[in-house]
Amino acid sequence: MSQQTHPTTNKGNARLGLTLAGVAVGMVGLAFASVPLYEVFCQVTGYGGTPKVVAQNESDAMDAAAAGREITIRFDGSVNRDLPWRFHPLQTAVTVPLGQDTLVAYQARNTSDEPIVGTATFNVTPLKAAQYFSKIECFCFTEQRLEPGESVDMPVTFYVDPAILEDEHARDVSTITLSYTFFEKKKGDGAS
């Protein structure tokens, strides 16, 4: 007996093949998009200790509960062991009113005999406070190039949103720590 191929079976197989190819292409696309999407998610929600990044102070006018409330912000700075820089905050802590824009600075010094480009990662602890910690300006938004022996002060402008008082899980926070770690940006690391 001869075996016959049915046209409907061939169409079904072709449709299934195209569907599976589409799923594979979609998965590859999601793999490439996952890191930028995750970074945006973290910046919007404060997930993983990532502070929010804003263009200006977005906190509402302070209500009676927030008026007079202060919070202590501690600062920490470190460098990856492969980066020949010294990096530290110029102040170890400040106590500020909720909702008030605050300017602080860190200092970096290139201790090598060649120019080096560095990039900083950052986080906020406790993690539950990160979504209320908003950075307006920060040296960490761009790469930093330091010439041999060069020392620079690097500003950070931030505020803590008074909405922290409305969060039953975060309203007890009295101290927040902002930490940075600098890494050397190697040639070929990402686009810039």
Results as ranks from 00 to 15, higher is better:
71 I>Q: 08
39 E>H: 11
111 T>M: 08
49 G>F: 06
18 L>P: 02
77 G>R: 03
160 V>W: 01
37 L>N: 05
188 G>P: 07
169 H>P: 07
3 Q>N: 14
155 P>D: 07
163 A>E: 11
110 N>T: 08
142 T>D: 15
115 P>W: 08
175 T>V: 15
7 P>W: 13
53 V>A: 12
121 T>P: 00
24 A>M: 03
9 T>M: 09
120 A>P: 00
118 G>N: 01
3 Q>W: 12
51 P>R: 01
141 F>M: 09
4 Q>A: 12
62 M>N: 09
113 D>P: 03
108 A>H: 03
98 L>P: 00
119 T>Q: 15
133 F>Y: 10
94 V>K: 09
44 V>P: 05
20 L>K: 04
40 V>I: 14
117 V>K: 08
25 V>D: 03
125 T>P: 01
15 R>W: 11
79 V>F: 07
76 D>K: 15
108 A>W: 05
145 R>M: 15
30 L>K: 04
93 A>N: 12
85 W>G: 02
31 A>K: 12
29 G>P: 04
48 G>L: 06
73 I>A: 03
147 E>M: 06
184 E>M: 10
26 G>D: 00
142 T>Y: 11
44 V>K: 15
97 P>C: 05
26 G>A: 12
143 E>G: 13
189 D>E: 14
68 G>M: 07
2 S>C: 02
186 K>N: 09
192 S>H: 12
27 M>Q: 10
80 N>I: 07
63 D>M: 03
116 I>W: 06
136 I>V: 12
93 A>P: 00
98 L>Y: 02
133 F>M: 04
189 D>C: 02
108 A>Y: 03
108 A>T: 08
56 Q>A: 15
85 W>C: 03
80 N>V: 05
84 P>H: 00
176 I>D: 05
18 L>N: 12
120 A>Y: 09
55 A>V: 10
21 A>V: 10
3 Q>T: 14
117 V>R: 13
13 N>Y: 11
114 E>M: 12
147 E>G: 04
120 A>Q: 06
104 V>H: 05
97 P>F: 05
84 P>D: 09
127 L>S: 13
60 D>F: 07
82 D>C: 03
91 Q>F: 11
50 T>W: 04
162 P>C: 01
155 P>I: 02
92 T>Q: 15
107 Q>H: 01
3 Q>A: 14
174 S>D: 15
113 D>S: 12
42 C>F: 04
52 K>F: 01
44 V>H: 11
55 A>Y: 10
186 K>R: 15
179 S>C: 02
104 V>Y: 01
144 Q>E: 08
156 V>R: 05
1 M>I: 13
129 A>R: 05
134 S>M: 02
48 G>V: 03
83 L>Y: 05
36 P>Q: 01
86 R>Q: 14
182 F>H: 01
108 A>K: 00
123 N>H: 13
188 G>N: 09
185 K>P: 06
57 N>S: 07
150 E>Y: 07
92 T>P: 01
144 Q>L: 09
43 Q>A: 13
84 P>A: 08
7 P>A: 13
43 Q>W: 00
28 V>M: 13
148 P>V: 04
153 D>F: 09
183 F>G: 04
90 L>W: 04
19 T>W: 10
61 A>Y: 01
12 G>R: 13
9 T>E: 11
16 L>N: 13
142 T>I: 07
189 D>I: 03
75 F>L: 07
